[in-house]
Design a protein around this nucleic acid. Structure first.
Lengths: 129, 129
DNA sequence: CCTTGACCTTCCAGTGACTGGAGCCCCTAT
DNA sequence: ATAGGGGCTCCAGTCACTGGAAGGTCAAGG
């Protein structure tokens, strides 16, 4: 299977797959003409990667998840630890964004948004928040 | 005022301020010895930048906000448009993260997290979400 | 006067995870 | 024979810093 089809099947652009090969996340076989040849297992691995990335796992975490996935003797605690840590980071990000949102939406609401120059948003940035 | 003190006053590392000068967000005077010399207005500007960045505005948006701030003839509608657009992006990010969080916390809850290899998290990544 | 240490300067390289593009090769269909 | 739609590699750029090297400057203490 060529890279285009593999990408189609996994939901990843070809460029991204080449990048994943570059950094050693996947090592597809090569045809005589130099084209990458993806097996079903390769595509399965790519789909795993696509899903892990979609859940926001960093590439290095994906590498660890792949290793755990391949290790049939793993302890599920190790997987859970990784995922829980990541969950905490997501929570932190969400609450940071919510804080930004609260402050900014407050300012936006206070701003008339007409052709006059008075602007509580600029004032908020100028003074304190 | 030297860069260290200006950074202290604005809540920005010296490295960041040098970077901001590099990209033309600020142009402090120079002492005879080559040291940057920050006026009160410079520090004010840096604080504005620090706050805009803390609200998640991209650097190019900060540049525009600074221009609007300096333009006493601005229309507050222009500021509000920028901020509203940014608010929408924040909302998108929050909801993406919440989606990730929902999926992942579901998987984490389902995972025993012991020394056995069965792991709903890996299964979730392997199959569909 | 000399040294020490904390500052300041510039410039270069690296981060994360791709993405775009140039320049080239290959395969299939007409 | 040619046109198109793949594929290949390699290089550069993104964003907003951040770290580090190599060196200049300044105030205080001995």
């Amino acid at each position: 299977m060529n890279i285009g089809d593999a990408g189609q099947a996994a939901g990843l652009p070809a460029k991204t797959i080449r990048y994943y090969e570059d950094i050693g996340l996947i090592t597809p076989a090569r045809d005589a003409n130099g084209y990458r040849d993806f097996s079903d297992a390769d595509v399965h691995r790519l789909r795993f990667l696509a899903r892990a990335r979609a859940l926001g796992f960093a590439i290095e975490d994906c590498r660890k998840l792949l290793a755990l996935w391949a290790d049939t003797g793993r302890a599920s605690a190790d997987v859970r630890a990784l995922a829980s840590e990541h969950l905490l980071q997501i929570e932190t990000k969400i609450s940071d964004l919510q804080q930004m949102h609260a402050t900014l939406s407050h300012l936006v609401t206070a701003c008339a948004g007409d052709d006059r120059p008075d602007c509580p948003i600029l004032q908020g940035l100028e003074k304190r928040l």
